[in-house]
Amino acid sequence: MTTPSLQVSGLAFAYADGHQALFGVDLTVGRGERVALLGPNGAGKTTLVLHLNGILTGGAGSVHVAGLEVRAGDRERLREIRRRVGIVFQDPDDQLFMPTVRDDVAFGPANLGLHGATLDARVEAALAAVGMTEVADRPPHHLSFGQRRRVGVATVLAMEPEVLVLDEPTSNLDPASRRELYDVLDALAVTQLVVTHDLPFALQLCERSVVLSGGMVVADGATADVLADEDLLRAHRLELPYGFDPRSVWR
């Protein structure tokens, strides 16, 4: 068996104000796997995500990214970890902070020391992967919300990450943009961890789902099975849209 993309073991964490968000999370994501991370608000999903690239550290337990342990204080290592773990944040206006789309996509790889033609090629490839080549020179503010979300994915892809982490990727998207985003993500070979409330989207994109609730992993299995377990969903405030039956979806 190859080294997994992500290996989280016994992760516990409390914020400075004493609020404890994680109580021992174990999670392994194999290379090339797509995993949905489901859970109600306040379950600790965002806290977990911020541990994956070492923005939050200092609790108990460990996080390994493709075999490399996340360690605070080691700047070189954090740099490499942040190259390997690409996080697409929920609000594209937080993610896209440079004056134009091209500058923004170039920000990550330029921090890695790329420049000139290599950098340009990286940017072009990432924009092509999300179908956004034609907006490269526009300011992010002039794009539609769906376009901004896709450019957000490109900014992270340009770093050629080991694992792509998406925080609520379908929030605020209209159905057509949501489907376009699905097409983009489905075509990517990279390992993906998708944090979402959108259960049909999880079923569509991810073979496997993990339910995080109260700072613990409470379920881990095939998405179709997890969504079919009505008691589990009810116990953790997860709800399928009206009329949606996961068993009737043809896969």
């Binding site: 690409g86 944040f89 170039a106 920000f107 990550g108 921090n111 770093m159």
Partner: peptide, 16 residues
């Protein structure tokens, strides 16, 4: 700032 850190920001912006 978090989003910048996540993409390897280490205190100085690359001059594009």
């Amino acid at each position: 700032h978090l989003a910048m850190l996540s993409r390897g920001y280490a205190g100085s912006m690359p001059l594009v």
